[in-house]
Amino acid sequence: MSRVPSPPPPAEMSSGPVAESWCYTQIKVVKFSYMWTINNFSFCREEMGEVIKSSTFSSGANDKLKWCLRVNPKGLDEESKDYLSLYLLLVSCPKSEVRAKFKFSILNAKGEETKAMESQRAYRFVQGKDWGFKKFIRRDFLLDEANGLLPDDKLTLFCEVSVVQDSVNISGQNTMNMVKVPECRLADELGGLWENSRFTDCCLCVAGQEFQAHKAILAARSPVFSAMFEHEMEESKKNRVEINDVEPEVFKEMMCFIYTGKAPNLDKMADDLLAAADKYALERLKVMCEDALCSNLSVENAAEILILADLHSADQLKTQAVDFINYHASDVLETSGWKSMVVSHPHLVAEAYRSLASAQCPFLGPPRKRLKQS
């Protein structure tokens, strides 16, 4: 649940008159999402009104509101027999009622949201009550392989729920002597030191190019640089560091992050930047690179990204790559990247197969709970 924001200063709310007192009302909304995959969808019983329910879910471990999704594969009634019906059901509720908006969509073979439908307002739910769409999607369109909505005969539904909580009022009075504290510009100011090479005390040599930097900042941000300058190493004695395995453009992006906490060109060089972040123990930059690479996972590059993640101990990226390969196994196994990995990294192939087997055979063990970014 997000923290209630402070109200904007009255002088910034309007260029008009300023009242002596004010009130700011925040209506709290808890948002969460749920993904439900139905394997072997074409084998569902086709009687009209037949119901399939998901397991229950909530916004978190401490949330007492429990929900589930309900599907009628062949419609709810005679009117909707040519459609799939989809509903959000409130299973248990400690209150007399709650209000919530919802959005349903289908994830296609690429994991993209399609055929989205959402409620136009927050509906009133009581325990045992459901709301949804009797005519969510035509069955003939859903079952047509050309539309790519049932890869490997799996129907994957994605649901986003927004639950309306209580409202909170914050009130106060205006004073004539309003003090406005300026925003912190530390990142910009440190970035200026790097860009202008002011007050530098060490030189970093990268592929024949020299960059002036500040030992204190490098040591504070990177345990690797800290070790170089702290001990009686040649880098500490000469205040000069030779860097041979990072390209200059990648190095500059890494230094921008060290000084400012930002990497504006990360998406263009996420793979190389991940390697640099791993070498210099820049954990936050490493996770930022993992996130960017996750966003660009595809059938063509899944094997290469899995190898990269394994090489640099990028655990979150590795998990996402394995899950992606499992979901698109029939396509990924035909790529040149996968065939190369079979020869060069057989242990990763074995890991992917083990994960695929456990996903398809849940009876082999208890269900695993899916539970950071600093």
Rank of each mutant, 00 (worst) to 15 (best):
K64E: 05
G365N: 15
A213E: 07
C184E: 10
N244Y: 05
S58C: 11
C361W: 14
N296Q: 13
S344E: 05
V91S: 06
E290W: 12
T175I: 05
I258L: 04
L186M: 04
R121W: 10
P366K: 10
M341R: 00
V164K: 02
L311F: 03
K252N: 05
G16N: 11
L371R: 12
R70Q: 10
H328L: 03
L356P: 01
S96R: 11
S59Y: 12
V91R: 04
H328C: 11
L84V: 06
C361Y: 07
V299E: 02
S96D: 14
P366V: 10
R284P: 01
S119N: 00
I38V: 02
R99Y: 14
P73I: 12
L190V: 07
D152Q: 15
R121F: 10
A219D: 13
E112V: 07
L88Q: 02
F225R: 00
L204Q: 11
V250C: 02
R138H: 09
S374T: 14
I305R: 09
L285F: 04
V98H: 14
A116L: 12
A219C: 10
D267Y: 09
L266I: 06
G60S: 11
S55D: 10
H231I: 15
V98I: 14
M1A: 00
D310A: 02
V18I: 03
S58H: 07
V206G: 15
Q26K: 04
S14G: 12
P367Q: 15
K81V: 12
K154F: 15
R124F: 09
L308W: 04
D77K: 10
S313F: 11
D63F: 01
Q316T: 13
N108Y: 03
L306H: 06
L84H: 06
L311K: 11
L293S: 15
V98R: 12
N196S: 13
P264S: 04
Q320H: 07
L89W: 03
F133Q: 13
K262R: 04
V30T: 03
S80Q: 12
K180M: 07
W338Y: 05
D315A: 06
C44Q: 05
L193H: 08
M117L: 13
Q373S: 15
L107H: 15
E79C: 09
L186T: 09
L186A: 09
S14I: 06
E351K: 01
A122L: 13
Y87S: 00
H345R: 01
P17C: 14
C205Y: 06
K339R: 06
W131Y: 00
V18S: 07
I305K: 02
L348I: 02
A146T: 13
E113D: 02
E160Y: 14
L84I: 12
A227R: 13
Y34N: 01
S340H: 11
A122S: 07
Y327L: 09
I106K: 12
A220I: 08
C202M: 13
Y87W: 01
R368E: 13
S42F: 04
D245K: 15
I170H: 03
V206P: 09
K286N: 07
L186K: 06
S96Y: 14
A146V: 06
F32S: 09
S6Q: 10
L155N: 08
T25M: 12
L150P: 02
E232Q: 07
T175Q: 08
C256Y: 04
S85N: 14
T319I: 01
E290G: 05
T175P: 03
V29S: 10
S358W: 08
D315L: 13
V287M: 07
S15L: 09
V349W: 14
Y87H: 03
W131I: 01
E12C: 05
V18E: 04
G148T: 08
E79I: 06
N62M: 11
S85E: 14
L274H: 02
A281Y: 04
A11H: 02
F133E: 00
A270T: 07
S374D: 15
V206Y: 15
E247A: 12
T37V: 05
T114H: 05
L143P: 13
S119V: 10
Y259D: 00
D130H: 08
K95R: 15
D310K: 10
E118H: 13
S295E: 09
T335H: 13
I243Y: 10
E46V: 03
F104W: 13
A350F: 09
L86R: 00
S358F: 06
A309D: 01
S313Y: 10
E210L: 12
N177H: 04
E249M: 01
G111F: 14
Y83P: 00
G365M: 15
W131V: 01
